[in-house]
Design a protein around this nucleic acid. Structure first.
Lengths: 138, 138
DNA sequence: CGGTATCCCTGAAGATACTG
DNA sequence: CAGTATCTTCAGGGATACCG
């Protein structure tokens, strides 16, 4: 998905959803959020996402009302990103997506989405991430 | 989503799914397929997608084993695109995505995914499509 | 640590023209 | 009608450097 186009939130239900969670990382970030991850470095470590991209995605997620950004410490100020009610309502979507992917994985790779805290971080360690448009070697 | 990256089909279940259905149009095409659409021009008319993009997406879907391309007429040869078993297995995913989007739409816009033949084509008429990277006015 | 700004590459997607 | 090929633009994304 390359963009968040003309239409805001109306039209086709399917399109609506894709607009909000269509970017590669968005669902993976939400997945981590369901796993209880809340901090910037947790997401970054878990996903191997670049900080700039993570910033962008988190901003969008906050702007979309799926995550809430709130301070949990002052001096220096630190924030955590927690699922809103709307964000939590995406759980069935993520479950469905993960379940389908799961059914295509070899048995030893399987690990159905559990949504418990830190379900299986090891699974994500080996995840290479989406297509990095950046330079391949430079 | 911008690419089909390094990993083929292993790793995270969520990523696996997104690799196959992550592109903007893919899910919409499949949605139409569930609605009983099978022909090139049906998809094109329904979605307002450019023919080149439709070709690309259909090829990928066939290559991924989600659709089957088979001739239904000779002289001139014509093909139809029908869901494979694997493609049909995506139905819960599409249902979940559409349901979430549906919950965000105004009541008069709603139309829960039915998967019957030609459920509600009118709904899609007004769909503007994903971000068109193409020129805006030229 | 927790981000933000900048640079640049790549792929998705539209437009258009063309073929069988 | 059913595509294919080519060109172009745009936004996603990685890398890097920097700020508080």
């Amino acid at each position: 998905m390359s963009e968040r186009p003309v239409l805001e939130d109306r039209e086709c239900p399917l399109s609506t959803t894709v607009q909000h969670v269509g970017e590669w990382w968005t669902l993976l970030i939400l997945h981590d959020a369901f796993d209880g991850y809340t901090r910037f470095d947790q997401f970054q470590e878990s996903l191997g996402i670049s900080s700039s991209m993570l910033t962008t995605r988190l901003k969008t997620l906050v702007a979309d009302g799926l995550l809430e950004r709130r301070p949990y410490q002052a001096n220096p100020v630190r924030h955590e990103y927690v699922l809103t009610g709307l964000g939590r309502s995406l759980r069935p979507v993520i479950v469905a997506l993960a379940a389908w992917g799961n059914s295509r994985l070899a048995p030893e790779e399987r690990s159905i989405f559990t949504a418990g805290p830190a379900a299986s971080p090891a699974m994500r360690d080996r995840y290479a991430g989406p297509g990095r448009g950046g330079r391949v070697s430079g």
